[in-house]
Simulated assay, not measured.
Amino acid sequence: MSVTYKVTERVDPRDLTLPKKFYARIINGDDVNFEELASIISKVSNLNYGSVVGTLATLIEVIEMQLVHGRQVRLSNLGTFFMTLNSDGVESQEDFRVSNIKNARIRFRPGPRLKRLMRNLDFERTAVLDASTTTAA
């Protein structure tokens, strides 16, 4: 299975003063929404659509509950969901206040199956024209 990419000209976000360079950029297809995912799972398994929807909805709810309790959620070979915090640093533990916490993020660490998928990818370049390089007729 090949991942399709195009080459686009961009600035280096770490140093905007550098000249633009050309970088690979993946061409993403359409999103797969919850209902479509449930439909696909029901077609490739012996589960009916309603059972799949119920199971996935429950999975989402349980993942949320476990993350709020500070637990990592490991989904077998798929990967692990976990939370991280971003906060301002202070000089001592006594000086730390909840107001120092700027945000919480949900992160995902891929498991062995997805890591293997990433190592075995093939890449196919497409000849997609950038809109900024085309001229009006």
Rank of each mutant, 00 (worst) to 15 (best):
K20T: 02
A38T: 07
T84H: 06
K21N: 05
G54S: 06
M1I: 08
V68I: 07
Q93V: 11
R71C: 08
N86D: 00
D15S: 06
M118R: 09
K6P: 09
F108P: 00
P110H: 05
A57W: 02
V7L: 11
R97L: 10
V62R: 12
N120L: 15
A136Q: 07
V68G: 00
R109Y: 13
S2Y: 01
G29V: 04
R107D: 01
N77C: 02
V98I: 15
V53I: 08
T55L: 04
F22I: 04
I41C: 00
K20Q: 04
V53P: 01
N48E: 12
L129S: 14
E36Q: 07
M1T: 04
I27Q: 00
V11D: 05
S2T: 04
L129E: 13
E64L: 12
F123W: 12
D88H: 08
G111K: 12
E91K: 14
D30L: 10
T17I: 02
K6D: 09
Y23F: 14
V62C: 07
S2C: 04
L37M: 06
D15Q: 09
A137M: 14
H69I: 03
S87P: 10
Y49I: 10
P13I: 03
L85A: 10
K21I: 06
E36I: 05
V62L: 13
G50P: 09
N100H: 13
S99H: 12
M83H: 03
L18M: 09
S2N: 07
K43S: 03
N77A: 13
L18H: 02
V32S: 00
N103V: 09
P110D: 06
R14F: 05
T126D: 01
L59E: 02
D88E: 12
K20A: 06
S99G: 14
T17C: 03
P19Q: 10
K21V: 05
M65C: 02
E35N: 08
R71M: 11
N46S: 15
S87D: 11
F81Q: 04
L121W: 05
A136Y: 03
D130S: 10
T134M: 15
K21S: 06
Y23C: 06
R25M: 07
L114P: 03
D31W: 03
S76T: 03
D95Q: 15
K6T: 14
T4D: 13
N103M: 15
I40L: 07
